[in-house]
Design a binder for these strands. Structure first.
Ligand code: MN
Ligand code: MN
Ligand code: MN
Ligand code: MN
Lengths: 217, 217
DNA sequence: ACATATTTTTAGATTTGCCTAAAAATATAA
DNA sequence: TTATATTTTTAGGCAAATCTAAAAATATGT
């Protein structure tokens, strides 16, 4: 597997989780910040390697083999993110770029030992689940903060968007994984909310509420 | 810096330590397991980037900039080897291939923190010195076991060759970094030796003796 | 010194992954 | 349903890093 191939499989894997049905060339190109013609080239190659099913003009879907490769890369990415945060004291908004590189290091044994060293974590620093060694990704019950009603409470268990900018915003508001959030008010008109975090009460936009995952309590 | 460029600079750096004078195209090709014509292409590119001095038919020598890049890559390689052995419990004969990949991860901050996490080690698991953050490599006093005379003693401080095969041979003989070695006999004819390691006395060839570094005591 | 051997460079291809521009297929809308 | 817009593919090229084969420069031995 080359670096480029791994990145394509990973992107398609993520798109399949977010999207119903076949994944279009354009969607992949947008996600990967490249041109549709480049995507066509690559999916033809991956199709020959039996990592995905491709029908001209009809989009692609991963085969079991392709899904496994993708899950393996995501497993590595997330384990390295845990390492960077837990062991090297990086902040959660600093690790993604470095993990993008580390996820391509090839060594079964390395990942086995890294996983052990980290205590076989189930989630990465952004609350995303870590696939097991067979590529199985267990889904947990969680909803978006925007779906929570007034006077209900939730524990933050993850973020949908994990750009440094958004994560730094959450820091400023003292929201991190495990933080209790109480919805004090919800504006019907624009979906904005007043929430309480520890002793602070403040306003958040619908956009923010749609990017925080919670478990209701 | 691309991966290929970094590997060329690293190879030339090592060749300069081992060789007097200019480094030939052929020497680089042999070290890198590639063809001389490929080397010519690459050194022309690196020359344009001012990372080395190249004169047609005359060989190359690193500039200060090139030396710094090379030392940086070697620093990363050796720090990662320490990590793999000290933290992930890899054996010293298993880490080189993985470090060959990890040495190309780009992040100043990562190396700063990794170094800290490891307690700023001075040597890697094979006894090789780790360049500091400015690319300075301090040389320590050491000689080859083959240079030691009969009845003298030395502490193993490193290995010249560090292939898995050789390291596994040393393991079998219970020789590792820090091990005391006593030369009980030395054959003038072929340079072979009888040495004592802990309570064992055994024969070693000149080849073996020429690949173990010791400090006399 | 001169022929021969060796080293090094050049010329021309190849592979991977990407691009732009144009053509072909598909979707949408009057 | 036919024209228009959008999506997707094809055609042709480019840059990086490699290769083989041939030419050029340098080294060596008698
Ligand atoms: Mn990430
Ligand atoms: Mn993550
Ligand atoms: Mn090594
Ligand atoms: Mn080493």
């Amino acid at each position: 597997m080359t670096l480029a191939e791994e990145n394509y499989l990973k992107a398609i894997f993520h798109l399949e989780l977010e999207t119903a049905g076949e994944i279009s060339t354009n969607a992949i190109a947008e996600r990967m910040d490249t041109k549709p013609s480049s995507v066509t080239d690559m999916v033809q190659k991956l199709s020959e390697k039996k990592l995905l099913i491709y029908k001209r003009y009809k989009g692609v879907s991963l085969t079991e083999a392709g899904r496994k490769v993708a899950a393996g890369v995501i497993r590595k990415h997330r384990l390295w993110e845990v390492f960077l945060v837990e062991k090297l004291n990086f902040h959660w908004d600093e690790v993604h770029e470095i993990a993008e590189q580390l996820e391509h290091i090839q060594s079964e044994e390395l990942i086995t030992r890294l996983d052990q060293f980290l205590g076989s974590p189930d989630f990465d620093p952004h609350g995303d689940p870590i696939p097991d060694k067979h590529g199985v990704l267990k889904r947990t019950e969680k909803k978006l903060l925007s779906e929570i009603e007034k006077n209900q409470q939730g524990i933050c268990v993850g973020v949908k968007e994990s750009s440094p900018e958004f994560l730094q915003y959450l820091d400023k508001k003292k929201v991190s994984i495990g933080t209790k959030i109480t919805v004090l008010g919800k504006e019907f008109f624009d979906g904005s909310m007043i929430i309480q975090v520890f002793d602070d009460q403040f306003f958040i936009s619908k956009t923010v509420a749609e990017n925080i995952y919670v478990q209701t309590i």
